[in-house]
Simulated scan of single mutants.
Amino acid sequence: MSARFAAALVPALLIAGAAAAQTAGPKSGEQADIPFATNGGIRTFTPDDRGNGVYLQDRRNNWYYASLAGPCMDLPFATRIGYRTFGGSSTLSRGDTIFTEREQCLITDLVRSGPPPKKERKPKAKKKG
């Protein structure tokens, strides 16, 4: 190995090591699990407009986005949801189920995210006078 190659390799390894040591941020899109979800660990939820996923907030105010296997038609109108975890665990993960009163929706992906996007308010109609 030449001295030039070794000198070029050291900074590259240091940069790679620093990137690996950083903790992923809350909006990272990194795979995640929500511990104690079935024991009151989910504080609130906000479904997306199409029923393809749901934003979940845990007790520590961290947000997650759960993508679903297909549209969950009741989800945008649900006032409450339940969870069924694989093997009776209390941790919500990919492969678990969210259910509403009439539907069961399979979680295909669960990632860290930011809060749900704010919905735009429609302007009030002007009164005719």
Rank of each mutant, 00 (worst) to 15 (best):
A19Q: 12
S93G: 08
A18E: 04
A125E: 14
T85M: 02
Y83V: 14
R50A: 15
S89V: 11
D58L: 01
G41I: 01
N61Y: 09
G95K: 02
A66Y: 04
I15H: 00
T44K: 12
A125H: 06
A21K: 00
A18P: 00
D49E: 15
P76T: 07
T46W: 06
A6L: 14
A37S: 12
A78G: 05
F36V: 12
N52K: 12
T79Y: 11
S93Y: 00
P76S: 11
A6C: 06
G70Q: 14
E120L: 13
I107M: 10
L110F: 09
G53M: 08
S113W: 03
L9P: 01
P26E: 13
S90A: 14
P117W: 03
R80D: 13
D48M: 09
G70N: 13
G40A: 02
A7W: 08
G29S: 00
A18L: 13
P11R: 00
L68A: 09
T38D: 06
D33A: 15
N61C: 01
N62T: 02
I42P: 01
P116T: 04
Q57V: 06
A69E: 13
V111K: 13
P26Y: 11
A125V: 11
A69W: 05
L56P: 08
R60D: 15
I107F: 07
P117R: 01
A8K: 11
A6K: 15
W63M: 00
S67A: 15
T23C: 09
L106G: 05
A125Q: 13
G40R: 02
P71W: 06
P117E: 04
V54I: 14
E103T: 04
Q57H: 02
T97D: 13
P26A: 09
G51D: 07
T91I: 08
E120A: 14
K118F: 07
N62C: 00
P117V: 02
L75N: 06
I81L: 10
P47H: 03
D109A: 15
T23E: 14
P117D: 03
G25P: 00
G53D: 08
A20V: 09
I34Y: 04
P35M: 09
L14G: 05
N62D: 10
F77N: 15
N61V: 05
K27S: 14
D96Y: 01
A8T: 03
K122G: 06
T91G: 04
G88D: 11
G114L: 03
S113V: 03
A21Q: 04
M1R: 13
T23W: 04
T85P: 05
S113F: 06
N61D: 13
S113L: 01
P47V: 02
S67N: 12
T97R: 08
L9Q: 08
A12D: 00
S93C: 06
P11H: 01
E101M: 12
D49Y: 07
K122H: 08
P116G: 03
D74N: 12
A78R: 05
G51V: 09
G51H: 08
Y65A: 00
L56F: 07
Q22W: 13
N61K: 09
G41R: 03
P47G: 04
I15C: 05
V54T: 14
G129E: 14
V10T: 05
Y65N: 01
R84A: 10
F86D: 15
A24K: 08
A66R: 01
